[in-house]
């Protein structure tokens, strides 16, 4: 990992992009990193496009501005691609990760000329297969970890398992489902 990695999340209000962003901060924190996780706030309600940010660094990052040149962009809802300039400022040596059942090359035309790496993951499918419902958070988080490498994948799995076990102490099947979702997601990220 570089000294500092900056990630921008795009989602819709109520979809969990903010939660995923805070979860990533949690995961990175647990691996000893300095973290920032902060959503951008407005008066918008459920369904409106929202943005959230992560800074993950070895030393404390004092910057408190938004992120304009992210290393990675994560798009939780592919319908945003037509309405939001998701690759704005995205570093060419970085990458974008999109929740979609399409292949990366199919989405590239929507990315306003972005030349860097494009990844897709079918978070809905994975989520529905492993959790029985569409919770795109867990798969997107796993994809973000895999692509950005801000946390070692093995460490990530261990850490999440401990966290899920704590969170769903009375529902072991939910822990298993989530762990399956994570493992599957780490495998099924499509590069292109």
């Amino acid at each position: 990992m570089k000294d500092i990695v900056e990630i921008r999340w795009h989602g819709r209000g109520g979809q969990g992009a903010k939660t995923a962003c805070l979860l990533l901060a949690d995961v990175a924190f647990s691996s000893g990193k300095h973290v920032q996780g902060f959503p951008e706030y407005g008066p918008e309600r459920m369904g409106a496009p929202i943005t959230a940010y992560n800074r993950i660094s070895h030393d404390r990052c004092t910057v408190h501005s938004n992120i304009y040149n992210p290393d990675y962009v994560v798009v939780v809802d592919e319908t945003l691609l037509t309405s939001v300039d998701v690759t704005k400022g995205l570093k060419e040596d970085g990458a974008i990760i999109i929740n979609s059942d399409k292949k990366p090359h199919e989405l590239r035309p929507l990315l306003r000329g972005y030349q860097g790496k494009v990844y897709t993951i079918d978070a809905r499918k994975i989520s529905e297969e492993t959790l029985g419902r569409n919770f795109p958070n867990t798969p997107m988080l796993a994809a973000a970890v895999k692509v950005s490498n801000v946390v070692d994948a093995e460490h990530f799995i261990q850490n999440m398992e401990a966290s899920f076990k704590h969170k769903f102490a009375s529902k072991p099947h939910v822990v298993a489902g989530n762990m399956n979702a994570l493992r599957k997601s780490l495998e099924e990220v499509d590069a292109g």
Partner: peptide
């Protein structure tokens, strides 16, 4: 403290 900038930002 600064609204949202620190109030809603998770940091170490």
């Amino acid at each position: 403290q600064d609204g949202f900038i620190t109030s809603h930002a998770v940091e170490n």
